[in-house]
Amino acid sequence: MFLTSRRVIIVVFVSVVVLLVLAPDVQAAVTGACSNCHTMHNSQDGSVLDATVNDTLLVSSCIGCHSSSGSETIVNFGPTRIPIVFNTTGYPTKPLAGGNFYDVAAAGGNIDSHGHNVYGISNQDSDLDHAPLDLWGGGCTNSCHASLAMPKSSMTDTQIDGCKICHQKYKHHGTDIAEGSMETEESGWYRFLGGHDARYGGGIVMLTSYVAGIEDADWEQDPTLGHNRYQGAVTNHNDNVLLQTTHSISAFCTGCHAQAHMNTEDAASGVWLRHPTMIRLPTTGEFADYNPETDYDASVPVGWLDPTTPTRSDAVVTCLSCHLVHGSQYPDMLRWDYSAMTAGGGDNETGCFKCHSSKDS
């Protein structure tokens, strides 16, 4: 039954670890009673619905809405389908495309290397005081480059919402788009991902800092039914306007982790210093065995120079080819156990060997 009463919402809020009320559907527009998500006076029967301060009179935060004490990673709330990215009682068997925050959360043991530390989910990283391999060393004042889980020192009564540092283009009442189409500004771009507007000399720049792509109907809960199509790019990592010019998912990652793949090839020796990204997946040699155009493996995803018309020659290695962005069950947020990747071990076609197929011969 579709819930319309604030009184029912209060019961849900009190009895469940987290409130499951708000999330984008496959399309951008949320449907249903306004009271499912918003409160005009933040009270009912003399009680405060939510003691915290939320944007646009919401009855809960991003984390409260996209968390669950159960095991499901998609929850139906009336006509709205809610993607769950934080299961509080265990890592789910069917995580969504970005993985799950459970391991890095306090509830999962605070395993810092297993995910992004986000305020409201986990403590600050015990080993890192800023984003690893950034350009600023955490020196950008009150910035996400320091920590997604750190209080914003200039605001004494609130905290940085770690989710919104990445998902800045959120439009839960955005324009619906046809399934399989590229996300638009009206829909909130791909997964609401984009950079912040920067002000210089009174002007505003970086309005074009967004991520493009095509979203899977069930967020890859069942990747055999479909998968995301990520915008890829082949470009120079030293370009300081990567996101504005390419709108690729890897360019978005470099906003905080620019040095992770900057100057990836030594010009003198031709030797890779770090694992390359934002390059075409080679079509010859050991790489020829993986054809994501005809046999896509969601556990080793690629980007596309044109997500609307993916072709093998335009498949691109991205940061997400190896990492889960929210959290995984392995160190370094990897999609697989790197310590178990043993060359010459047999007929392994997973992990590293999906692309480097001959290394396990």
Rank of each mutant, 00 (worst) to 15 (best):
P301V: 05
A288K: 15
M278S: 15
V300S: 09
T283C: 07
D295P: 04
A288C: 15
R274K: 14
T284R: 04
T311K: 07
T283R: 08
R312C: 11
N291F: 04
R280I: 11
V302R: 02
V302K: 04
T308D: 11
T311R: 07
G285L: 08
W304F: 04
P307K: 09
P307V: 08
L281C: 02
T294G: 07
L273D: 13
T311C: 02
E286Q: 15
G303K: 03
P310T: 00
T283L: 10
Y296D: 08
W304I: 01
T277S: 09
V302C: 12
H275W: 15
N291R: 14
T311E: 05
E286F: 14
T284W: 03
S299N: 10
P292T: 02
P282D: 00
E286Y: 11
F287R: 01
P276M: 10
I279F: 11
L305G: 11
S299D: 05
F287E: 00
S313T: 08
P292M: 04
T283A: 07
D289N: 12
R312G: 14
P282T: 01
L305I: 15
Y290S: 15
Y296I: 02
E293N: 09
I279G: 10
G285P: 02
L281A: 02
Y296H: 10
V271P: 03
T294H: 14
I279Y: 10
R274W: 11
D297G: 05
T309C: 11
G303P: 06
F287W: 06
A298E: 00
A288Q: 14
P307T: 10
P301S: 07
V300T: 13
Y296W: 05
P276G: 06
D306N: 12
T284A: 05
H275R: 13
W304D: 02
D289G: 13
E293W: 07
L273C: 13
S299P: 07
A298L: 00
T294K: 10
D306S: 10
I279L: 09
L305E: 15
G303F: 07
G285M: 06
P292D: 03
F287H: 06
L273T: 12
S313Y: 01
M278I: 11
L305H: 14
G303L: 06
P310L: 02
A288G: 13
P307Y: 08
V300D: 08
W304S: 03
G285T: 07
P292F: 00
A288T: 13
T309S: 14
E293Y: 02
P310D: 03
P301Q: 10
T311Q: 05
E293P: 04
W304V: 03
T283G: 11
W272M: 12
M278P: 08
R312W: 12
D289P: 07
